[in-house]
Amino acid sequence: MMEAATLLWIYFYSVLLVTVFLSLYGVYRRPNVLKKIIMLSIFGDAANVLAVLMGFRKNAASPPVYPGQTYTEWSAPNSTQLQQFASAAVDPVPQVLVVTAIVIGLAVLIFLSAAAILLYRHYGTLDVRLIRQKIIEGGVEE
């Protein structure tokens, strides 16, 4: 009999894997460029959640912020307190990577949206099958 925690982890991973597979299916099979972009951003978000999930630790769920600071008060912790803090905090490195990945993902999303608008302007459709047909037929009338 598996522990409840292990079952929960299987659940987390399978939900994320299902999201990843579904979004890849959307990118690969949906003909609409806009839906491809939406699915690509869902894929990126699922990857980010996966990264943060991997930074989680058993019995150590506090965020990597030293407790007891306010806008006006701060006390330097001694080494015992630091060890205690390090044993209770989650892994900060995946979170930092995710912050970077979110920014890059947003940049890609902005550029893809602009490119989709241009695609529509040029071909009059966002359906990749129709775009392919128009290209095969010899370009678009200006």
Binding site: Y13, G55, R57, A76, L82, Q83, D91, P92
Partner: peptide, 23 residues
């Protein structure tokens, strides 16, 4: 095969957690 709530930190994470507040 995948990390399931491990109890230990990676050396890099331990380095950051211990050095950021250590004057």
């Amino acid at each position: 095969l995948v990390p399931v709530a491990s109890t230990d930190l990676t050396p890099l994470a331990r380095f950051y957690l211990l050095n950021v507040y250590n004057g």
